[in-house]
Design a protein around this nucleic acid. Sequence first.
DNA 1: ATGAAAGCGCTAACAG
DNA 2: CTGTTAGCGCTTTCAT
Lengths: 331, 331
Amino acid sequence: MATIYEVAALAGVSPATVSRVFNGLTVSEEKQRLVRDAAARLAFTPNKTARRLRKQSSEIIALLIPDIENPFYTALARGVEDRAQESGFSVVLCNTDDNPGKELRYLQIAASEQMAGVILSPASDEVDLGAIVSLGRPVVAVDRTTPYPVDAVKIDNRAAGIAATAALFDAGYRRIACIAGPAGIEMTEDRFLGWRQVVAARGTGTHEGYLQHANFRVEGGHAAMKALLALDTPPDAVVTTNNLMAIGALQAIAEAGIPPETFGLAAVGELPFMVLAPATVVQVRLPARYLGRTAATMLLDRIGGDTQPLRTVVLRAEVSPPVPPGKGLAL
Amino acid sequence: MATIYEVAALAGVSPATVSRVFNGLTVSEEKQRLVRDAAARLAFTPNKTARRLRKQSSEIIALLIPDIENPFYTALARGVEDRAQESGFSVVLCNTDDNPGKELRYLQIAASEQMAGVILSPASDEVDLGAIVSLGRPVVAVDRTTPYPVDAVKIDNRAAGIAATAALFDAGYRRIACIAGPAGIEMTEDRFLGWRQVVAARGTGTHEGYLQHANFRVEGGHAAMKALLALDTPPDAVVTTNNLMAIGALQAIAEAGIPPETFGLAAVGELPFMVLAPATVVQVRLPARYLGRTAATMLLDRIGGDTQPLRTVVLRAEVSPPVPPGKGLAL
DNA sequence: ATGAAAGCGCTAACAG
DNA sequence: CTGTTAGCGCTTTCAT
């Protein structure tokens, strides 16, 4: 890799001038040309590491997500990436696996790599963002929140939970259970509170065991659904607070030999690659990509020196239009 | 962020000694303790940027994949990540979007960021890996190949195509079409050659238009399937050379009102989150995660100085066990 | 507008 | 075993 010194020598100027050319500072037309020619001939690419050491910052933003195999997060990642590209930033994707230890480690890496900022969907309420924030690196929480005061962009989760549950009521179901994520994550709590609110207001009373907590994976939804079906008075419909758990629930329903069209299912989130949409699956569509884009915009604003007070942007989810009868593929 | 100079001052040793402690070189027990105490008190984290500038290399490997929203690639990414973590490396995920321009750009970034190596699934045969290779950075091609001489790990694609097609034959289908990816990518060509081989050997002769090329996305498979169904003698089964196109094909079949159990579908790749597996969907399972892990292992070997001749590891795909009747959820 | 020179924080000889 | 010192390649005053 050629350095600015070699370029400078070839162009007959000083290294400083080469640097100026590559940073868009004022350089005479003539020398500008000289430098560009020399650089082209040497296939010169500025050494980002040296530049970063000097400037104490980079054009890289870290994105910490809990599960890279969840399409919701990959869509979110796309949104972040697209926006970042527009401003010449690169994105480093870090998979925390919902593991606070891994999360912490990546946060340290972000700091020691002089990354420009961090967007994260916290694995737990206990993330310590103090270290990175005190370094002056902006942080934006996305999808999930954190007690630590940072910018955030989230979904109106309570409303999403309400919409999902209400749709099942409207479809005629009366014994509606809920498969929620792990206790202690505000995002999923809010969604199940939405469920509880609707059930309390319109339901036929609460049933024992209708609220199940599970991890956010397919197996979690599967296990929880099995537990629900084993109840004395099993539900006739279920709300899941994320996409993957809905898949697991569907699998359990199928395994139990229940004709799916007789059982109501509403998911907060989109069921990925759902070729086969039984009319009874309600999807509360989450604007995942836009969530990412918004978070990236907020972060880039901060990186650019924006100093306004902390903001939380709340996005509204949208209930999927009911599947027209006969259109939902009856396999 | 504290520097080694501050730690050195507090510990009463030289900066070099601090460096040695953090690099596991020989330092007396006593000073070792001194340094660690001082470092802890200052919350010192070594500045990776400075270290990288000095060492001319980093512990980061770049992973360039064509589509981060394709579960095959996220699974592959997991494999890479898991293996990398074990050796203390981090992974930067880059989404090329099957766009040679983006791919080139990321390759340049990998070079100018002094990344330790690159694992990529080339977007085109024209990738120029010369620049990065001549920098001494190891490169491993994964899933797809490239004419440029680098280590590679791939699937036995011809065998996968054969397996998929043969399974349909065995199930009694006789007019088997193929939806292949874009022409010019060896991976997909090999799969469709497998199809052609079986059709030629066991088929009732070739039909006009039974080979469709499409992009690798859901829409591609959808459009191709529509074209197939519009033929004078439409096929009674189809092989798709990747997972996403199979989804699109299924959608088109459903839209056409064809009872899916009367139509055969075999996909090279797994249909992600397939709750609803009609018995007729044959999946040739690709060991995506293992593919990633293997690629990472090869790359890390090279980074570690392994100098053996170029290797290509070929992994064998596995046909999904036939879905037991009544088990494939009939929605 | 341009050049000279001083670091950014770390590692790796080289002495001792 | 440990300290001194010279850079890695770039940006940025400070002069000119």
